[in-house]
Simulated assay, not measured.
Amino acid sequence: MSRDATPEVTPTERTSDETVEELIRHRLSTALGGWRGSVETALPTIAFIGVWSWRQDLKLAVWCAVGVAVVLAIARLVQRSSLQHVLGAVFATALAAFFAMRSGKAEDAFLPGMLLSGGYLVGTVVSILVRWPVVGFLVGAGDPRAAEDPFGWRRDSGMVRVCSRLTWVLVALYAVRLSIQVPLYLAAQVEALGVAKIVLGWPLWIGGVAVMGWLLVRGNTPQELEAVRDTAARASDAD
């Protein structure tokens, strides 16, 4: 076989997803969680705001939120199901409780979340600038070969471009969260902060995923099929 010849790609060598956008849609659906995780994340906040609005008792509100998170974790253990989302809720609730109890201000329960959003905002922007977009890691997590080649997605320049566009959606989400929550925090609007935290949590994330889906449906970026090219190169060298 000549080194300049273009080998024919057999059906078994082709990917089932014809474009980068189709592949990303499939990978993201594998990597994202379901509705139960969103409920487990929101319930401790709902308990905190409910008790605070009823009694204006910071300690009672904090302990009720922590209690709800612990009950959710116990339920997961009894059912022998994944603790991934509920452990995140337990940790976030404990951290929020620490901040609120330390200062004695109920609004400080929301400070860790705002600081985290600020960190994510900076991190997502930097990831785009250095061409390691955050969404690419989610796409890589959905790859069945992730354990062997976790950064394989970066070899496809089209994949990097599309993941960068999708990561800008995340940047917008974090910017929206901070633009609403920071003024409420500075004004010590605890009840409004609680509502904002819930609405700007999974509901906003679902809206962001919908925007990503719209971008993916509109796009038509061809894959570079690195694996096929590597196979072809090895075959040419062998000849």
Rank of each mutant, 00 (worst) to 15 (best):
Q84K: 14
R3T: 11
V135D: 04
V90Y: 02
Y185M: 09
V66F: 03
D143S: 08
D237S: 15
Y185K: 01
R229H: 15
G119E: 03
A106G: 02
G113V: 01
E21M: 02
P222E: 11
E226N: 15
E107N: 04
G142I: 00
A61H: 02
G37Q: 09
S236R: 15
V169F: 05
S157M: 11
A210R: 08
V130F: 03
P11W: 02
R27W: 00
V135I: 15
P7D: 13
G50P: 06
W153A: 08
V20T: 04
T15R: 14
G37T: 02
S16R: 15
G213A: 14
Q181D: 04
L115A: 06
V78E: 03
Q189T: 06
T124W: 11
R14C: 10
R14L: 15
S103G: 08
M159A: 11
S103V: 00
P203Y: 09
R131I: 01
E226F: 10
V9L: 01
L95S: 11
Y120H: 04
W132F: 12
G207I: 00
M159R: 10
V70R: 04
D237V: 13
L225W: 12
R102P: 00
L111Y: 02
F137Q: 11
A69V: 08
I24C: 00
I128P: 00
L200R: 00
R218P: 08
G158K: 01
A92Q: 08
L166K: 04
V135A: 07
E224Q: 15
G194F: 05
V125W: 12
E22H: 10
G136M: 02
T167G: 02
A97M: 10
T10S: 14
R161E: 12
L166G: 01
V90P: 03
V71A: 10
V68P: 03
Y174M: 05
G118Y: 02
G207V: 01
L116P: 06
D156V: 05
M212C: 04
S2Y: 07
Q223S: 12
M101D: 10
I128V: 11
G207C: 06
V39Y: 10
V176A: 13
V176R: 03
R80P: 07
A109I: 04
T10M: 10
E226H: 15
Y174K: 01
I198P: 03
T41S: 14
A89G: 11
Q79N: 13
A227M: 09
D239V: 14
G119N: 08
V139W: 07
P150G: 07
L200W: 07
P7G: 10
V71C: 03
A238Y: 05
A75V: 13
L216M: 06
I49W: 05
G37L: 05
V71R: 07
H85A: 15
S81W: 07
K105Y: 12
A232C: 00
G123I: 02
S103H: 01
E13K: 03
S2I: 05
T19R: 05
E13C: 01
L58E: 07
L121G: 02
F98V: 15
K59H: 13
D57V: 08
L111N: 05
V171G: 02
E21D: 11
I46C: 10
P183Q: 08
F137V: 12
